[in-house]
Nucleic acid binder design. Structure first.
Lengths: 208, 208
DNA sequence: ACCTGAACACCGTTCAAGT
DNA sequence: ACCTGAACACCGTTCAAGT
């Protein structure tokens, strides 16, 4: 006689993502996930192939969440020029993307780290999911520097933001006086500089 | 009767570093290290406190190796201007540091990733070791943009290089057409742009 | 003083047995 | 059809016993 299902793939992914967010990937054990969804560890193998499969689903969920945050940031971007009636520029949207990425990483450091971590092959996220995640970055970069340099601009922006955020999260290489407020200033200053540097790119030889 | 020592802390660190380089941190087990140095796993606890202690020693060794590579890169930097007799500028040394970091990361991807990874508290490297690692970056940055902006310049350079290299190593967010040769071009182009952008910084309000 | 086997509490994963 | 306890091969770590 068939027994009723006591959990679901969605519940497993949700529980696993929560564990990663609160305790980090090392705490993502099959027993912890099973306990969170109310079954025993062996039952999980009815819905997933392995722990790495669970990890992959978490990474993809995180990528989707970051993509949504980036989309929202573009929609909600306001003008840097605070004069009444000033229009929002593509440069404003570039800055908004940088800020949204940093905010996401600070809110969910373990999850964010996973996006760029060295993962086992069977935990690698679907490239199509990642493509959606960065779609807004490519689009805004194109508006800012022109379609020909959209790729090069997106890469430069992403590299700088990711590097800054990683160093901030790791808390190493503090380079002397990195206090919290100082980092905020350094980020805003750097983001403006990078956005400005990208805009100059359209003059140089295209590299896309 | 005292038995002779059959291994040493140096041998343990060397073996552990080799395991990390060849198989990655997940393969760094106490049994693997013990087997490599010719003892049983419990014997390791005579020289180290825990697996995280071994990991910390590996991270510090990697930081020392990167620091040496950066120092060598600065010494060996040549002029971008290939005219006979052209002098090596601070900008040339900035580019040389960027190239050396990328070369290190490509040669030892697992080791490099550890430098910025989220690590357990008892695996965190000694800040003094990390300070030595980046000393050359701070020094060259100061020569390039002036002492007042040395910190800000070093941070921007390190963030961009680290971000670029991480994206390259992870192989995700390929953003369309990232072939091997293309990435080389993109790196050289980006490094020149960042070096140029830093040089402009000295005009702006200092942020150090 | 150093090294070891045995043991403990964990992992991921498989599988026969239950319902 | 789904779930489970038991089992297996691993982990890190401790410790009494050997030399």
């Amino acid at each position: 006689m068939p027994t009723p299902e006591r959990t679901s793939l969605d519940a497993i992914v949700a529980a696993a993502t929560e564990i990663v967010d609160t305790e980090g990937p090392d705490s993502l054990t099959m027993q912890a996930v099973a306990s969170a969804v109310g079954v025993r560890a062996p039952s999980l193998y009815k819905r997933v192939r392995s722990r790495n499969d669970v990890l992959r689903l978490v990474v993809e969920q995180v990528a989707i969440d970051l993509g949504n945050a980036l989309d929202s940031a573009v929609d909600g971007a306001g003008p840097d020029d605070e004069t009444a009636g000033a229009k929002t520029t593509a440069g404003d949207r570039v800055i908004a993307l940088a800020r949204a990425t940093r905010a996401f990483a600070r809110a969910r450091p373990h999850a964010y780290s996973l996006l760029f971590a060295r993962l086992p092959d069977d935990a690698l996220p679907d490239p199509a999911v990642l493509a959606r995640t960065i779609a807004a970055v490519l689009r805004v970069s194109g508006e800012h520097v022109g379609e020909a340099d959209a790729l090069s601009g997106a890469r430069t922006l992403t590299a700088w933001v990711h590097g800054f955020v990683t160093m901030e999260l790791a808390g190493r290489f503090r380079m002397g006086g990195d206090t919290a407020g100082h980092l905020d200033d350094a980020f805003e200053y750097g983001a403006r500089r990078i956005a400005a540097a990208l805009a100059l790119e359209s003059d140089a030889e295209s590299l896309a």
